[in-house]
């Protein structure tokens, strides 16, 4: 440990890598939410018997999401490389990792939105319909606000998964803590570096989870059970 602490250049690298990890997770989470939430909402409301039943669209969306979720992230990373290159300009590095991370998280977010919205009492939706609410009003004034605490917890879960996935982005030189752990910790036999990155990752996950819990609790307006 003492040898490592003396090694200030390496410490700087780890600091930068922590920043890269946060950057990758935050940006890909943002994209995943922006695309995943509307997808999840569409998946729910298109269910037969829901506010905008479209059975075929529902089935198609469902199978797209399942396909996305069944590809292991390491494989997705390489599979998407050509597309990443076209879209982002580069297919490697921190920037190159954000696109595949977002793609991996979108179907996950969509399913989380689906389960959160399905847990809502159908009676509340019926009440809104009886007041003459349009489907859009039901989405923006009933479904999303009422599911908000559950959604926050779902986004927290997604963020934590993304921390894990982002470590794999080291495989394409994505930078971040995973990259440091592989290149310094594993390949140069620096077990101390390996340990330090793991400790930082644990701390990141803990902070994310307790922040998410706190926000969800506040959003649930003092109800004991969220949702």
């Amino acid at each position: 440990m003492s040898k490592l602490l003396a090694d200030s250049a390496l410490q700087n690298l780890i600091l930068t890598a922590t920043g890269q990890t946060l950057y990758m997770v935050a940006l890909s989470l943002g994209i995943a939410i922006a695309v995943g939430v509307p997808t999840g909402v569409l998946l729910v409301i298109s269910t037969p018997g829901h506010i905008l039943p479209r059975p075929r669209l529902h089935a198609i969306l469902g199978s797209i999401i399942n396909t996305g979720r069944s590809i292991p992230f390491v494989i997705l990373l390489f599979l998407l490389m050509p597309l990443t290159k076209v879209l982002v300009g580069v297919s490697i590095g921190t920037k190159g990792a954000i696109f595949p991370l977002a793609v991996a998280a979108i179907p996950f977010v969509a399913r989380i939105v689906e389960t959160s919205l399905q847990e809502l009492d159908p009676g509340v939706i019926e009440a809104a319909q009886s007041m003459g609410a349009s489907p859009l009003q039901i989405i923006t004034k009933v479904l999303l606000p009422e599911a908000w605490p559950a959604l926050i917890l779902g986004f927290t879960l997604t963020a934590i998964n993304l921390v894990g996935y982002s470590a794999m982005a080291g495989a394409i030189g994505g930078g971040g803590l995973g990259d440091i752990a592989i290149r310094y910790g594993y390949q140069r036999f620096r077990n101390d570096v390996l340990l330090e990155t793991v400790v930082i990752l644990i701390i990141l996950v803990q902070i994310t989870q307790s922040l998410g819990n706190k926000l969800a609790l506040r959003a649930s307006r003092g109800q004991r059970r969220i949702n």
């Binding site: 009492d121 009676g123 509340v124 019926e126 009440a127 319909q129 009886s130 007041m131 003459g132 009933v142 606000p145 009422e146 908000w148 605490p149 959003a219 649930s220 307006r221 109800q223």
Partner: peptide, 18 residues
């Protein structure tokens, strides 16, 4: 618009919880 002129109440109240 017609529904806005027809109020409805329910067995389980169906209020917005939050």
């Amino acid at each position: 618009r017609a529904r806005q002129q027809i109020g409805m109440i329910f067995q389980h109240f169906n209020l917005l919880k939050l």
